[in-house]
Design a protein around this nucleic acid. Sequence first.
RNA 1: GGUCGCAUAGCUCAGUUGGUUAGAGCGUUCGAUUCACAUUCGAAAGGCCCCUGGUUCGAGCCCAGGUGCGACCACCA
Length: 1074
Amino acid sequence: MELSKAYEPKEFEDKIYRDWEKSGFFNPDNLNLPKNAKPYTIILPPPNITSKLHIGHALTLAIEDLIIRYKRMRGFKTLWVPGTDHAAIATQNVVEKKLWKEEKKTRYNLGREKFLEKVWEFLRETQSAILHQTKKMGASLDWSREAFTLDETRTKAVAKMFVDMYDAGVIYRGERVVNWCPRCHSTLADDEVDYQEQKAKFYTFKYDKNFPISISTTRPETKLGDTAVAVNPKDERYKKYIGKEFLVDFVGVPLKIKIIADWQVDMNFGTGALGVTPAHSIVDWQMARLNNLEIIKVIDEDGKITENFGEYSGKNVLEARELIVEKLKSQGLLEKEEEIDNNLSICYRCGTPIEPLPSKQWFVAVDKKIKKLGNKSLKEKAIEAAEKHAIEFIPERFKKRYLNWMKNMQDWCISRQIWFGHRIPVWYCKQCGEVNVTDKANTEIIILRHGESRSNVEDKLNSDIKNQVNGLTEKGKAQSVAVAEELKSEKIDIIFSSDFKRAQETAKIVAAKLGIKKIIFDKRLREVGVGEFEGKPDAGFSTFRENNFEKWHYDSPHGIESFDSLKTRVFSFLDKVAKKYPGKKILAVGHGDVARVAKGFNTKRGDLEVYKLTYPANAKDVRVKLAPAVCSCDSFNLKQDEDSLDTWFSSGMWTFSTLNKPGDLAKFHPTQMLETGYDIITLWVSRMVMMSFFALAEIPFEKVYLHGMVLDKNGKKMSKSRGNGIDPLDMIEKYGADASRLSLLIGTTPGNDIRFYEGKVESCRNLVNKLWNISRFILMTVEDVNIDTAKINPVHFEDKWILSDFNRLKSDKEKLHSEFGLVSEGVTGKLEHYDFSNAGRSLRTFTRSHFADWYLEFVKNRKDRIKDQVLMYVLKDLLKLWHPFMPFVTEAIWQEMGMKTTLMIAKWPVQDKKLIDEKAEKEFAVIVDVVTKIRNLRAEYKVEPVKKVDIEIKNADKLVESKLVESKDIIMTLGRVGNLRFVTKKPEQAAPAIIGKIEIYMLLAGLVDVEKEKERLEKEKNNLENYIAGLERKLGNAEFVKNAPEKVVDAEKTRLTEAKEKLEKILEQIKDLM
RNA sequence: GGUCGCAUAGCUCAGUUGGUUAGAGCGUUCGAUUCACAUUCGAAAGGCCCCUGGUUCGAGCCCAGGUGCGACCACCA
């Protein structure tokens, strides 16, 4: 069997990923597991659909796939759920910017519906790019459970959550000072506010002559809304005024100012007195609430002074500021005007200075006590979960950040003035103003006109129920079939129909095609009554109505039905459907005028215009969307809230909104692990905890593993704007997915940022190729790839050693102490402790150094069955251990070996303690030392590689002497030795190397360079002397001998003895050279 | 301003409850190609473990103070 010379990722990766998908094992339902198998679930943090994935996402995928593959191999019912996040504001911004750049249009130019279409167009593009990237990384995600925060299922869940929270009193509508951008006309979340350093004029003045305290501000115009002056309660200067009220005349505006005390006031800033403007400062707003102050709005949504401020009203803030300062100057009230540095809050999108404004918004009350949570609030539960270790943070320090933020959290504003996202499920009644909160979906009614009938062809009006002789023509029947085809994709729930024959026949054809059995006939869908025009041509009737609209509106001339009557019955039908079938999609087969009137309902036009609407022939154009609620005043004329929800509201539900397959929630929630970047602890992690407590009264996850940020080589955060962002696809293209993943895993510790540069990927690529070539060699060497590896009886000590060492590598203990070199550390233990980096390092060291460089070199020329067994045993299990790190290459080799099942579900190797053999380890370590020393001697003497050297070994340790003899040939090969003798007497003219009791001499005949050798030995002598002096100092210290553990003291003594022996030999050698 | 983190070889990072002469990968230098692998192998050079003090028989590790860098939160009226 022979593999290609180098591993070519491109030849394998796509095919392997397809095979994995085909196997179905990404889905835990398909894993063949015992009933009691424990679940292990991670929900992938959904990437924003604002852009393609960057290397930071690749890190998330690499870590999570590593954990998931490891757990899967360990027999857990393993689930990893993929998805994407609609990222409301961010996405809307990206599309708005694009729209402006490409078409010079704003969202208002397009209107809500058209704009949203654009957004969806954009997101479908990025979404599929993200999907492709994720698969390329090799992520073993269960695609059958893929979710999107704004798909139908999640949208329903979000609306229901909102309603439930509202019903529980946890969501409320309230007024609060919010960050308002006067240009974007939207509130901004705190994290959407940028700060700009600026020089500002800082004015110090009094409101009027009679007011005793001076205040300072950079924004005199807001002072029109002051209702208090706050001072520090400790401030002796103002103590006497606290609680007093003053009526002042501030630049012509009368104000009532109360003096209040507040600890937040800095006595040393300005005058130590703060003018409180409740409506235009978040801090002041809080003070106002505590002190029951009046709130006066001074600035409106356009950034202009509101009414009732005389000459200032209607001016923008800068104009008003100038005017007020002038006025203060002229009144002699301005005491100081200085320049200070301050931070100006600006909109992160357009840079316009932000106006804090009071505004009606929707909030989640984080302090509201909730009955089903033991009368604790969401905040309390979220704090408790971390403090009582229900949720563990890795690394633990981030718990502090979480708790700190949580404890200071105020009610969470969840409404955003944007179009994209989950529209707030609240309807305001236009009639009585009542607020209706419901998660019921819109009811949608499609009004369909019947197909061509004989009365159409013959041009004889027919609106008499007793005279239903005419049905559909052949053409009409064909039209009905065609319409039914079109309607197939609509998922119609119910069909209504007029009871006129032509409508009945149409409805029956459509119903049969759509597979709907029952048709509900409703008189209200009948054609308008034509009275005396019955049986006559349409033209007369139409002309009459058009000429006599006013009259026909309410009356019934010539016995025809009035417009009002027609409208009333059609609307009554719509009303009934809205009430009785909320959220359904309904087809109503009727007639021309019925469609016309219904269309008017939808467009909310005046009666006359409604009548002039043309009705279409096909089904898709007349649709009525009805609000899902009917107000208690019985009106269904409701208007939905224009705002959308904060994107974290829906992503906060992510751990459970994704588990919507029947039984999933019970099986997989709470999830075991959340793995994400530390930058979204507050934004996301905290929200998930609260949302999960509200919805399910349980934690969303047991552990939170936080990874760092990926930085570029210079330690700068990667981003597109900096131009240092890296597309994982580029790395995969160049080095393969395995190398890309590995480069992100090795050298990465939880919570710490990682620097990424191509060199890392390159060296990982080399390692991947090394594993490939090890396999290539083994598969070429062994006689039978399927050799039984269950029972190995190793005879050679090198076999015993590698089996021993390899089983240490498998260990679930993080580190096994051993005093010998070349001993591996436990990979399983490291993985259990989330120490992925060191797990990878251990594997790398074993693979490269222990297995390839020593064992394989050692046994290269051996030909026997036991060796084959050892090789296959190590290779198979090594592939398993590597699999979570580099799934593709390990699977590729596995398949090349002719394995029938995928490596993905192979059992994780368990340590076989019987194979741990310390004696063999020690013996092999000596051989390694001897060979290394010989190589060192050669290198120091610059012996040409082709030239063989003569070596004599003296006084070999009894224990290992036989092994040295046994390995004579291999030592000679590895050390390029011509003659190897075991002697009892030190040779003349030879360079020594000493390992404990073993002395190795390289004979120098023909290569002697006395000066060089002297120099080398002197250096070593000095080293040893210093070392010995240190040890003697230590051991001569009575305190050390007294206090240190015996083990440590003994070890030092041994070292001293050995060093002295060694020094003695060196000295002898130097003497010889003299 | 508050909180947290980081500082070890030229670079990126390990370094366990304090106990050998502090390690790895990359890079550099020297050398090797009939060998499974030049995506390879052998070897070497390279460290006031940020500074100052303390605890201890003993500190890269623990404590205090400082310096530099970074992050998060708050925000100056």
